[in-house]
Design a protein around this nucleic acid. Structure first.
Lengths: 195, 195
DNA sequence: ACGCCGATCCGGCGTTTGTCGGAGGGCGCG
DNA sequence: CGCGCCCTCCGACAAACGCCGGATCGGCGT
């Protein structure tokens, strides 16, 4: 339930203050002060969210260099924090996968709220389902049935909701499988959500 | 297979040129010139990607106003394009869900490559699976089994890969179900990928 | 040492799933 | 009209699933 947050901030006092504030608000927060420690942390354990200061130990772009690894490779939703936001930095943050930019000074409460928001986000996979089903070239009925199957319903439950016979639903599901090139519910899910 | 792209650009010539270029490169591209038309387009049909000019018909932030609707509500990965990038605009684009900022002038090929990249992205749900399994508090063996089940494998296939009996695997799967509060493979998928 | 827990295995039972063949009705198009 | 497509339903069957009781084994704690 509690999300794991990686905090990368070189100022010792600010780092510990923020880390404590986040922990008090229900996050499991690991705090590091430099690029190398951040890499070690993500390699050792999984994280849901990250907060990264752009400038680390005088290096003007150390935080930005972490973005590809955190955001792209590991799919960690990342907030970038900085005192001096110029176009080049913000643009790079955006283009390298950051999800939010927070300018210092900011309150711990502000950051916590933002993280809660990012946490809730990505909790809706409906658009991905719709896209996958559309690309399979299904008929209307097949799409409706597939939608419900992908919600975890059994053929009998779908039949009740759609006002059909269970056998009919099984037929539709079977044809959905054929069009998606799969042969079981599990494979259909994996077709929609590859990994 | 072909992704649907919404192009929002007020300059008629640039819009049609880009639209043609994208279509030639395999995208299904719908091009509109103002905010209202963009809203109508996304309401009428689903899109995978969007390209939005920040400035529309003299309105300095019309494109940015579309971001919450496109990116957040509908989960459309959106590229923002602009001739004059200032900190405020780029920051707002980032904070409202844009995935990339492209500064004019740019080539059609550049945009197409970028869209292809965004298209490929979000094709890996492994991090989401790991997060969901971790939060369920599973044992090592249960996690390993769950991972394979979520890849679409049957109990027998998992048993072969893990060197266990099929019955044993079914036991593990059963306990995974209990810990996740579900009672079927389909429900387990829907537990990991809510919608 | 004893108990507890996790991992491993077995047999079995009822249910669900996925597929096959067959059969009808509606609807649009050449 | 006939043809194709979509939706609908049925019976049947093998496979997979989910769960039950019961069993062994090793580690770990007090």
């Amino acid at each position: 339930m509690t999300s794991r947050v990686l905090l990368v901030e070189d100022d010792d006092e600010a780092r510990e203050t923020l880390a404590r504030a986040l922990r008090r608000r229900g996050f499991e927060c690991e705090a590091v002060g430099d690029e190398a420690a951040a890499r070690a942390a993500v390699a050792a354990a999984p994280f849901d969210l990250a907060v990264v200061d752009v400038v680390l130990r005088g290096d003007e772009t150390a935080g930005l260099r972490l973005l590809p690894e955190l955001a792209r490779e590991r799919g960690i939703r990342t907030v970038v924090i900085t005192a001096f936001a110029d176009v080049a930095k913000v643009k790079r943050a955006l283009n390298d996968g950051a999800r939010y930019l927070l300018e210092k000074p900011f309150g711990a409460a502000e950051l916590a709220d933002l993280l809660h928001q990012l946490q809730a986000e990505e909790g809706d996979f409906a658009p991905i389902v719709e896209r996958a089903l559309r690309k399979a070239g299904l008929t209307e009925k097949e799409t409706a049935v597939a939608r419900l199957v992908l919600k975890g319903l059994t053929s009998a439950e779908v039949a009740r909701l759609e006002g059909n016979s269970e056998k009919t639903v099984r037929q539709h599901v079977s044809r959905v499988f054929a069009k998606c090139g799969v042969s079981s519910r599990a494979e259909l899910f994996h077709y929609v959500f590859p990994s």
